[in-house]
Write a protein that binds this DNA or RNA. Structure first.
Lengths: 192, 192
DNA sequence: TGACAAGGTGAAGCCGGATTCCGTATTGTC
DNA sequence: GACAATACGGAATCCGGCTTCACCTTGTCA
């Protein structure tokens, strides 16, 4: 009952396996971006040029595949926030994040679902999936509060909800212009 | 090939049938409000105190049941808009509609889904489901435009998308306060 | 190059939910 | 009260996804 179990622990993946894993990931990304998380495993396999069984060799379950991509997306979002934080002006920084983030979500149906599903589990302690995103966004908000350029009654939770709303509004916007418009409306509404 | 077919055309429903139809409708409403349109037929039947078969006697398909309720909800929404139109001030009228509508959507998961699914099919000509809602809301918007109290670049389509976004933002808001806050943000953003 | 374990395949199994079906119960009419 | 027409119930069926499995293929290493 000790810790042995040297089985197939961390032996490096075989070359073809690594390649396939990557293909699956890419195919899944495309499928989820287009069709949301209810894209079908069969479809993903087809896009990857692989049998369904192969997907299951790498991911025990569809949910695991979704989670893997979700983590990646949230990390991307965290990076966007980090980038925005480098802007000197607090309001500019927040605006930049909002705009870029909205753009991402407009394109990515899967991300919207993930974001929506996260719900308030997100803010629960620091445990939430990708806490880096949370801390970065918190920082963006705090800076604005200190500069007095953001409604005081909008905290992290409220901001998150509004971002989700923005994403959804944006989701069935056809033109790029509309997308911009919605972001503008929200941003204007956020001023004190 | 004429028009006969006098079969069971419009003979009034038997008493018990009418009663059950009503119960099903109420149960379905509750279920959809709570769980959205993927509430299960079995669950609806249970709530109605009826067998699944009975549901199918009255509605050929789950979708038909959803549609029936959707129409009703949209009609309700049209009524809210009509009521708002009675207010003398254009902006007050629009605000009132936004607030009451958001409140409805916050409670009604099914309605949110319907509203989201409607997508742009809504504005397509006058054909959309419940055109009364469309005309009333158009009127609310036009009045605001004439009074110059609403961004000129927000037309019906844009307004609709923003309402949907508001509903979604609101959907995982816990407090009533948050719900109000989101509406405020949007409304403020809508000013010219 | 041969052996063999890691990896791939996709048809079959499984499961959850909508829909059907038919024997039974209720209503309305004479 | 009895008959015919309507309705009801809910187990059986159908269907569309995810997941598994028994059997091939390929990469790796001596």
């Amino acid at each position: 009952m000790t810790n042995q179990m040297p089985s197939r622990a961390d032996r490096p993946l075989r070359a073809d396996a690594r390649r396939n894993r990557q293909r699956v990931l890419e195919a899944a990304r495309d499928a989820f971006v287009e069709d949301g998380t209810d894209a079908q495993m069969e479809d993903i396999a087809r896009r990857a040029g692989v049998g369904v069984g192969t997907i299951y060799r790498h991911f025990p379950t569809k949910q695991a595949l979704i989670d893997t991509l979700a983590d990646q997306w949230l990390a991307d979002s965290a990076a966007i926030a980090a980038e925005a934080l480098e802007l000197p002006d607090a309001w500019e920084a927040l605006s930049a994040y909002v705009r870029r983030s909205a753009e991402d979500m407009m394109r990515n149906r899967g991300l919207r679902q993930v974001y929506g599903g996260l719900g308030r589990l997100f803010e629960k302690g620091t445990g939430g999936r990708n806490s880096e995103l949370v801390t970065n966004v918190r920082r963006l908000i705090d800076r604005c509060h200190q500069a007095g350029v953001l409604r005081a009654d909008v905290g992290f939770a409220e901001f998150r909800a509004l971002m989700y709303g923005l994403a959804m509004a944006t989701s069935n916007a056809d033109t790029l212009g509309a997308q911009q418009l919605y972001a503008d409306v929200i941003l204007k509404g956020l001023r004190p």
